[in-house]
Design a binder for these strands. Structure first.
Length: 268
DNA sequence: ATGGTAGCTGGGCTA
């Protein structure tokens, strides 16, 4: 056993266009100083990602972009050894919704991190909802394969899933929405049943811990939010979890993303 | 009352 342990923080943030959020993202990184950051909804091509802005802040960048929509990235202060770009299981699916990195952390250890942007799926039912359910089936299969490594695994991102009634301001009004429909929540729960844990619930299950507020109808001002951004941890990561935080500050800034960051602190 | 906002794109789609 090592005498001293390193604490690292892993964050996730759906930025809703990295070009629009480049300055806010840099400002937040300077404040919060996360070691690893999963970003979603870049809405730009891989080659258009403002890599140098983040490299100047000390981050290595793994990016999977796409024209106009989707797009995911992982920023890491530690070396990125290998990446998986795109969610395995369907070579015909060209959505940039998944990137994974094996990262060497201090002490000669490794963690594996995925940045996830699950399909929204509305309206439901529709082909888009079917795509969402099929995407979760693929995520489940891939998660099962990753768990076999028995290493600290962090699956962080915008899952577009409201797990519990407490995770939405008005659950009765959301029963037919693709984010809260039973089939979608069951698909998410099947992944949890593989043995990964929702880090927010592992720390504190009171609810009212939203990560998203719609731009419309003054949702932020009225705190009409959703908890749809999640950090899922393998058993090897869960036992190292020391703290979780939903940082609401960036949602209050000018020209905000509609999502705000979630951070997990791990003792490695 | 089928709105209301944001982003990408250059009209309509996605969220």
């Amino acid at each position: 056993m090592p005498l001293s342990r390193a604490m690292i923080t892993v964050a996730t943030w759906n930025v809703n266009s990295i070009k629009q959020r480049e300055a806010a993202c840099a400002a937040w990184l300077k404040q919060a100083k996360p070691d690893v950051v999963c970003l979603q909804e870049l809405k730009c091509l891989t080659q258009a990602f403002p890599r140098s802005t983040f490299e100047d802040l000390g981050y290595n960048c793994a990016v999977l972009g796409q024209k106009s929509f989707n797009g995911v990235a992982i920023l890491s202060k530690f070396p990125i050894d290998e990446t998986v770009e795109g969610l395995p299981g369907d070579s015909a699916d060209d959505h940039a919704r998944y990137i994974e990195a094996a990262i060497s952390v201090p002490g000669g250890k490794a963690i594996r991190v995925a940045s996830i942007y699950a399909p929204n799926g509305n309206p439901a039912p529709s082909p888009k909802f079917e795509y969402k359910l099929a995407w979760f089936d693929r995520l489940k299969a891939h998660t099962k394969a990753l768990l076999a490594y028995e290493e600290p695994l962090i699956l962080a991102g915008d899952y577009n899933i409201i797990p519990r009634p407490n995770d939405v301001f008005n659950p009765a009004g959301w029963t037919e929405d693709a984010l809260f429909r039973l089939e979608a929540r069951q698909a998410f729960r099947r992944i949890l049943h593989l043995g990964v844990s929702d880090a927010v619930l592992a720390c504190d299950s009171r609810g009212e811990q939203y990560t998203f507020w719609d731009y419309q109808a003054g949702a932020w001002q009225k705190n009409l939010g959703l908890r749809i951004d999640h950090i899922l941890l393998s058993p090897q990561a869960l036992r190292r979890l020391s703290n979780i935080q939903i940082d609401r500050r960036p949602r209050s800034w000018d020209k905000p993303s509609d999502h705000t960051p979630v951070l997990a602190a791990l003792n490695l």
